[in-house]
Structure formats: C-alpha cells, structure tokens
Simulated scan of single mutants.
Amino acid sequence: MTESDSDVFSLPDEADTHDHDYHQLVVVLDGHTDFDIQGNSKQLHTGEGCIVPSSDGHAFAGLGDNRIMVVNLPIPPQKSITDQEYEIVSRLFDRAAYFQLNPRLQILASALSGELEQYPDDPMLARACGNTLLSSIRHQIDNKEVRLRGNQLDIDKLDQFIELNLSRRVHIDQLANFCFLSVSQFHERFKERTGITPHQYLIRKRIERAQSLLSDGFPPIQVAEMCGFSSQSAMTNLFTQTLGITPLRYQKQHPKY
C-alpha cells in the first residue's frame, strides 16, 4: 500500500481550522470529537472516523478526554507506490466522508494505536500501522453489502472483542453487529451455541475478570471500574449472587502470590 505515516494524540477543546496538501484518515479511539469538513459537520464518537481529501478545509475540536489516530498520505505519493495503489487511494479519497468502524476494525485500530504509543519514534512502524488501517478501512467501505454475508457466530473472535471492551458498556447490538446478525438472530444463535443469553455471558466475563484482578491485589472499587460495572455495589451484588462470596472476602482467600 502507499507510503504513509500515522500518529495517536488528543484533540484540544479549542476548535481549530486548517487545510493541507495531503490526504488524511482520522479514527476516534476514545471519547468524542467535533469535525466539520467543507461545511459538513458531525460529532464523532469512539469507533467512528472521517476521510479528509487533501486541501479540503476542515475544523475540529475535542470534547473532553479523547484519543484519535490519524493517518497522513502525502500528495503526490512516494515513489514506491505503484500506479494501481495510487488509483485505489485516489478513489478512497475522492470525496470527504464519515464512517463507523465495524467491531473487528475497532479491535485492529486499538491494537495498532497501542503499538504507535509504545514506539512513537519508529517511522517504519508508523507507516506500517497507517497502511494496515487504511487498507482495512478501504475494504470495509468498498464492501458494505458483502460484509452482510457473514451471519456466523465465531465465539473466539467475539471473546476478543468482549475482552477489549469489557471496561466499557458493551451493548448486545454491538455484539450482534460484530457477527453480522440482527439482534434477534444473534440472541437465538448465541443461546443455542452457549446455553446462556448474551447478557448472562457478559456478566460471566465481568465476574471472571474481577476474580483475576482481585487475586492480583487490585482494590474492589478499581476492579469494578476495570470490569465495566456501574458501581462497586453493583459488582458486589452480582459477584456475591454468582459465587456466594463477597469480592473482598474472595480477595483475601485467593491471593495470587
């Protein structure tokens, strides 16, 4: 794919307006941002993003805590890019657009951003991460209808998505979308496959992570937040109902070291 570079950072609360002579792909990793491209404005949330063609004026501002990943593509392209690759990029950036990543690409964007933050001064890594994300998003945008063909329940991949987002509020419709199923189809197939409902499965996953974190010595109030419970008391109630023991007593009886 084309030579590009990428970066992860937060947008300031103060709005800024500019344009530039390179294409730009923006993905919101966490939080919320405001974007306006040539008068077409939209508030972007986690997992959403936009395509900004070169020289299209745009304004942006962060809304509280936020993290975005930006991929910049120079125009004209680097010499290493082929004519075919240039044509693909040109079609993708033919006009400004907003998009929402499917859950699989949210996992990818999160993983790539983690690598960028781990090694911020590695230009080869920045190019590789940028090209990977760009190519994957291009396939999603080009194949919207094709993506509906899946209709399969891959528990292993579903677990990866749940584990990545367990500290947040995971909605059943997100899980259904991840499997390319309607909510009713997902609920039916999930229960057939696992014997429990998706909601019960999420609770089990939260309890399992809470057990691990408590054994690691994390305080219960922090464990509740890390496991996506609405409060420590909510975790305590569910934990006690499920295991017959309070989180604090469990922690005392099951130290990892």
Rank of each mutant, 00 (worst) to 15 (best):
V70P: 02
I81E: 10
D36E: 11
Q118L: 15
A109S: 08
L116A: 06
L29M: 05
S41W: 05
I68D: 00
G62D: 01
P77D: 08
V70K: 06
S90D: 15
E48Y: 04
L29G: 03
E117Q: 15
D94E: 13
E87A: 15
D56T: 12
P74W: 03
L29I: 08
R67K: 12
E85R: 10
Q38V: 09
A111V: 11
I81L: 12
I81H: 08
V28T: 03
P76Y: 03
V28N: 00
G39P: 01
Q118S: 15
G49N: 04
V89A: 11
L44F: 04
D34W: 08
F60G: 04
I81Q: 12
K42T: 09
H45G: 14
P120Q: 05
S55E: 14
I75D: 07
A126D: 03
P123W: 10
E117F: 07
F93L: 10
I75Q: 14
L73R: 09
D94T: 13
P76C: 05
D30A: 12
V71N: 00
V52N: 05
H32G: 14
Q78C: 14
A59G: 09
L44K: 03
L63N: 13
G47N: 03
V52C: 07
G39K: 01
A111Y: 08
L101I: 07
F99W: 06
M69A: 08
I37M: 02
V89S: 10
L101Q: 01
D122A: 11
R95D: 09
D56S: 14
